[in-house]
Design a protein around this nucleic acid. Sequence first.
DNA 1: CCCTGGCTATGACAGTCGTCATAGACTCCG
DNA 2: CGGAGTCTATGACGACTGTCATAGCCAGGG
Lengths: 185, 185
Amino acid sequence: MARDTRSRMIAGAARLVGTRGAASMSLRELARAAGVPIGSTYHHFPGGKQQLVEEAVRSVGAHVTRRIEAGRDDGPAAALEALADEWRDVLERTGFGSGCPVLAVATEDDPALGALATQVFEAWQESLTAVLVDAGVDEQRAPRLAMLVVAAIEGAVALCRAERSLRPLEDSVVELRGLLDSALG
Amino acid sequence: MARDTRSRMIAGAARLVGTRGAASMSLRELARAAGVPIGSTYHHFPGGKQQLVEEAVRSVGAHVTRRIEAGRDDGPAAALEALADEWRDVLERTGFGSGCPVLAVATEDDPALGALATQVFEAWQESLTAVLVDAGVDEQRAPRLAMLVVAAIEGAVALCRAERSLRPLEDSVVELRGLLDSALG
DNA sequence: CCCTGGCTATGACAGTCGTCATAGACTCCG
DNA sequence: CGGAGTCTATGACGACTGTCATAGCCAGGG
């Protein structure tokens, strides 16, 4: 029961941070949305809001990293598709109401959360770099390509949310796939 | 004097929105930062915070559009560089404290501001598309490339802010330039 | 049976927020 | 000099925030 409340709060926090940003997410609203008691927030998260947001961002980060690495043997195109798929799902499930919580945290003013976002982005880049190198991409170039992929996907997700359409993500993926293909030679 | 107060408030709002986001920007803080009287906010902006944020985003959008179109005859590489230059300047001048206010507004929950952000992004994409077509890029592909460029630059700026380094932007620009070059043939 | 300990519920706290009404201070024209 | 109109200053309003102390509930073990 305790674990359930805790994980529901983390999942809800991830969605709410992706919706309003960490600063604008209210603990009362989170409790309401997650269907958990308001008053016991500090029982499960003694570190308060900061701890809650940190765990939510870390959890999303780890989940996406796993998704990238799951298809490591299927090549760069599959890794790109995994990344895009994750956010396509989120955008569609929430009716373009929520985006990437890591990006949300990266664009806010809290240095601790900024450093956390960087950790997550770097983990994604490392996984992508490994896939690229495996596929024969130049070792100098692979990290740069991985950086572009992460930046472009994150930017595209934000554009999708504003435009309430998947087109920015789909267009970006088409061009990125072409670029990755041409880098394999 | 009036015009001066007004434009200082708009410039300050652009910076603050790029720093904390529109929802977390306080009118009191804006007045303090812009060195203008707190109480007269609603004299200059009867529409309140919403009008202020809208004018700030529109002003930044128009400025960047002009910068892209200024070098229209210098080709895609110059347009890309103009876009990157704008945000490099902002990031450096603010010590990675402020990013792109249009992206900030795009990732928040206000549908009106989201639509506004989309307008700005579309204006940028149209300018870039024109430059690409001028340079001989396929007319089907040019809008897609422009979309990727905008998404990637915006994403990269966010990563720069979190990482407190220009590397994400520089890396992305290198790869984007290569891609644009290879699309000219 | 009681009672201990994990969980929940309620409400207070100090602070900030956007908004606006009102009153004072200026500048400039007649 | 006087008055009109533009701008500034002050402070109030209700609502919301994160945080936490306190008290109550309710299952499990002795």
